[in-house]
Structures are given as structure tokens and as C-alpha cells.
Design a protein around this nucleic acid. Structure first.
Lengths: 196, 196
DNA sequence: GTCTCTCTTTACCAACCGGTCAACGCAGCC
DNA sequence: GGCTGCGTTGACCGGTTGGTAAAGAGAGAC
């Protein structure tokens, strides 16, 4: 089935939000990529803000299924799941270099940072994504505790620390335009994960 | 002495870059806060980009002197310097909540993230700030090694990890609009700093 | 055939953006 | 007094932005 206009708009927005950021992406540009006219856009979405929120949720639905759930469903449990997450993130940045000759950083962190001041609703949406990611990581850490890989501790806080390290590493890699900056920092994820 | 128009423009830009971000801040807005007209602006700066670069450097000059050098110059050496840095960052975010009712996050990280795709020169400028900060942190870690607080290790890499954790924590605090998110993550800085 | 409803098209708008320009005020210098 | 040059002013420009409105296309129901 060929995707509906609405779906193509969401897809185009999801891509452009990462490639070109929220403010740098115009409604016209989203429409052009989706092969739609602006009138159609405003038939499906009341505003650019609403499209962005929908696109962020759509991306997270995809990433949750294809990355987080996939990591949870197979392979060694515990800390190895964290390694597979950082592997995915590194590969994602490699892809951005390959296609756009630029380290694009975190799709969620980018939008959260630029809209944080401006748009409460988008900020909240990104925050929900972060919370959801922290939940996954915390569950993986519980596995690691059960397997005796790490000592008991506040896994929720540990998960927050891990996510902060990853998001910060993505930011540094983007600003330095160098994926290795992410990779080298991500190597210390297990240490952060095992701290009390 | 009353500051020159040029200095007022830099000051206003430095403030607005943090309060309202790069793209959300118009040249007209900078001029209004500086009490200048747009013609004067373009007498001193060839473009908005150039003003931003100048403003970022000015902020870093200030922060380097009043925070990083100040921390280096007094108080207990070693890891305690890191604690004083995180204390400053937490206080800075508290101030942003107090004045703007918003967690504004990292003044440097914010601009770096939003201009990373768009403007090579601003990105590079922020990257230089990060490098400079990593240098300070690495020197503090060398002190910590000498004092026997932490084991020998790659202090440059450790410093990158610390900065990534802090920038990530600031991002999470901003997206979550909650300074405590920064504070709780920042508590694990010593752990990151002591990892080999 | 025609009514209806969803979706699409096109033309349009006011607001704002970064940036330009020619004129002007005014201090210092001769 | 006049000349010079820095700093200032305010009007202006083309381009773009998010968003609107009205007319139409097309399929399904009757």
C-alpha cells in the first residue's frame, strides 16, 4: 500500500526535524518532500507545532519498536543491552555522516533543546520520550543486578545518568563534527551504569 | 564608564542567545535591548552570525575568568574543583528559573546544538569552548591523581566524559524543566572522573 | 444524476526576517 | 570657519514564514 498523504507528511517531518532542526524546517519544505500542497498540510494538522509533536511520537514509536524492544527481546541480557544501544547510536551517527556529511546528533535531544524555551508542548513530548528511554535502561540495569554484573543501587538514577551521558556525548560529537567523540565517551557507559 | 554601543550589543546578544536561542532571537530584538538602532548594529558587525560568534567568545571569556580560573585559583585542589563547577552550574540554572521561570540549560551547548547543522563557524566556536573546558577539567583531574584521589588514567578522556555528562544533564534538566534532574545526575561526576 | 464528504489545489495574506542605504550629528583637527 | 570620519538614524527592500480561504476533484451512497 502506498502511504497516505498524512503519513508522508509525518515521515517527511520526522526526517527533516533531524536533518535540519525544527526552526530551520519550513512547512513548505515538509510539503515538498511529502509531495503535498500546503493546503493539504493544514487539512491534516492545525499547526506546525502539532505536526512536530506527531512526528516526534512517530519516530519514537519506530525507534522503540525497532531498537529498544528489539534489544530487549534478543541477545544477552543485562549490560550487553546497553552496549547494543550505544552501537546503534554510533551507527546512526555514522549514517548521518554518510548521507549528510554532518554529525546530526540526537533526533530527540536536538528538538528538545531548540524548542525548550519556546514551545511547552513539544518540550513535554520530548521529555516523555526521555522518560520512556530511562525506563528501558532501568529495566536492563535490573537484569544486570540479577545477573550479578553490577551491585544493587538506584537503577532509575543510574539510567538517568546513562541517558545524560549519551545525550551529552551526542551533543559533543555534533558540535565537534566527529563521531569518535561519541564512541569514546560511550565506552564509559558501563562505569556510569554501575555507580551507586 | 558607560559601555560602548558595541559592547552593549555583545552583552544583549549574549543574554538573548541564552534566554531565547539563536534562531529565536532577531537582530531587531538584540538592538532593542542594547538601546541601539539596526543601522548601528551593521556598522559594528557584518552579520548576525558574526555577532553570535563574538557574543559566545565574550561569554566564555567571562565564564573562564570568573568561574574556571576562579575555581583553579582557590579552594581545595583536585576533585573538589569539579564539585565547585557543578555547584556553579546548578546555581546558574536556579537563576534561570528564578528570572525566566524556565530551565534554560547550557548557554554553549544550546547554541552549538541549534547551529550545528547550519553554521560551520558558530559550531566551531562552541567546539573551541568545549575544548577549553575539557582542558581545565583535565588539569583538575591531574591534580586529583597527584593527590591520590583517583588512579592514573587518561585524564583527557575522563574530562570529555565529565563534560558530556554535564551537558547531557543540562539538556535533560531543560527538557524536563527541572533543575533537580541536573543536580542528581551531576552527583555522579566523581565516578565518571575516576573511571579509567 | 446528484448530493455529500473527504481531500486537494491554488492563490493569497500579514508579519517578520536579515540586511542596505543615504542622510545626518558631531567631535577633533587644521 | 571648514573639513574629515566615526557613529547614528530611520526609512526601506526583497524574500520567506506560518497560516488562510475558496473553489474544485473524486469516490461512494442513494
Amino acid at each position: 500500500m502506498t502511504p497516505t498523504t498524512r503519513d508522508r507528511l509525518i515521515q517527511a517531518a520526522s526526517e527533516l526535524l533531524w536533518e535540519r532542526s525544527y526552526f530551520a524546517t519550513g512547512v513548505e519544505e515538509v510539503c515538498a518532500r511529502a509531495g503535498a500542497r500546503k493546503g493539504s498540510f493544514y487539512h491534516f494538522f492545525p499547526s506546525k507545532t502539532e505536526l512536530a509533536i506527531t512526528a516526534i511520537r512517530a519516530r519514537w514509536d519506530y525507534v522503540r519498536g525497532h531498537v529498544f524492544d528489539a534489544i530487549s527481546a534478543s541477545g544477552p541480557a543485562g549490560l550487553d543491552r546497553l552496549r547494543r544501544l550505544t552501537d546503534f547510536l554510533a551507527a546512526e551517527q555514522d549514517r548521518s555522516v554518510q548521507f549528510f556529511h554532518l554529525v546530526l546528533g540526537s533526533p530527540f535531544g536536538n528538538v528538545g533543546q531548540e524548542t525548550g524555551h519556546q514551545d511547552e508542548r513539544i518540550r513535554t513530548t520530548v521529555n516523555e520520550v526521555f522518560d520512556s528511554q530511562i525506563g528501558y535502561i532501568a529495566r536492563w540495569l535490573e537484569e544486570a543486578v540479577e545477573r550479578g554484573e553490577i551491585l544493587e543501587g538506584d537503577n532509575q538514577q543510574r539510567a538517568r545518568n546513562v541517558l545524560a551521558l549519551l545525550e551529552g556525548a551526542l551533543l559533543m560529537a555534533k558540535v565537534g563534527d566527529n563521531v569518535d567523540l561519541f564512541v569514546s565517551v560511550a565506552a564509559s557507559v558501563p562505569v556510569v551504569a554501575s555507580a551507586l
